[in-house]
Design a protein around this nucleic acid. Sequence first.
DNA 1: TTATTAGCCGACTATTTTAGTAGGTTAAAT
DNA 2: ATTTAACCTACTAAAATAGTCGGCTAATAA
Lengths: 166, 166
Amino acid sequence: MRLTTKGRYAVTAMLDLALHAGKGPISLADISERQGISLSYLEQLFAKLRRSELVRSVRGPGGGYQLSRDQVNINVAEVIDAVNESVDATGCHGSGDCQSGQTCLTHHLWCDLSEQIHAFLSSISLLDLVQRKDVQQVAKRQDRRYVDQLIMSTGEKAPADRKAAV
Amino acid sequence: MRLTTKGRYAVTAMLDLALHAGKGPISLADISERQGISLSYLEQLFAKLRRSELVRSVRGPGGGYQLSRDQVNINVAEVIDAVNESVDATGCHGSGDCQSGQTCLTHHLWCDLSEQIHAFLSSISLLDLVQRKDVQQVAKRQDRRYVDQLIMSTGEKAPADRKAAV
DNA sequence: TTATTAGCCGACTATTTTAGTAGGTTAAAT
DNA sequence: ATTTAACCTACTAAAATAGTCGGCTAATAA
Ligand code: FES
Ligand code: FES
């Protein structure tokens, strides 16, 4: 079992998509900027998310990604699973044969744990996350920061005027 | 967050110790044999388990390891923790600053998950495991196999007589 | 006393995974 | 025609995993 940045990035990116839904496709460059994730790495993750049919892509200018299902119908467990980070805690992947073909002493414990984690993560939908106060706060901060950077790069306003400009 | 063979081995070995408690110290060679874990690797794991004061060692012939506390007072979470496999699912180790010093979008989700896993694993004591039917069955099989091998290596009985010999 | 047992300790290593980078191709819009 | 942004393959540095190897020390038993 493992849960590293790969799975965390995937969930974060999907949540970013959910938060900015209804404004047309979101480009990976935007997500990269807002969430601080390398663009090329995001591309790899989204290739997997697309293969798992969790997102739809639109090519060309103004293109990007959209959730392929309703937010309430996508849960955290399947996002993590899509990028090959299994939520499985057993060493035998459930088959009960990790000790030279036979069941090891702790197999059932790991099965129970896997079930526990899976039940928890699959009970949480993207909509649940979008509606959380703490998520909304962070999202607000990120959007402000993002707009700031856009203005900075266009580059005609002094830092003190930034907030007024928005 | 990670849960690999390191943590699984540690729990398995500790459970082996619990199952054979009351028969004096258990040598790592015995555990290695029964559980199919490399002896040298076990030594490394037990060095950590000893530092965390989960086991006591007895040196010399007839020596080995014993649980340093009652089975009911050792839980799975602390065993995993002792071998440096954190049960923490966050990327910031709880400090909430993984996105260049600020809290990332999914921080609270991973905190919740960590809490969930920790609550589950710390609610299970070695005694709980020892009392499980499935554990007892596997333990029985392993003990039989182990005795078989002892006889084989002493080597004076034909395979057909093995069971009678015990 | 001497051999054996079994814990203790440090260093070394092959393999795998992670977290990326780099460089290009293709489809759609302006 | 140019730009945008998805798409794709291959490569890579660094870290972690799952060990191995060799030697040392304390305690017991012959
Ligand atoms: S973890 Fe399933 S048999 Fe060991
Ligand atoms: S996981 Fe804690 S801040 Fe990102």
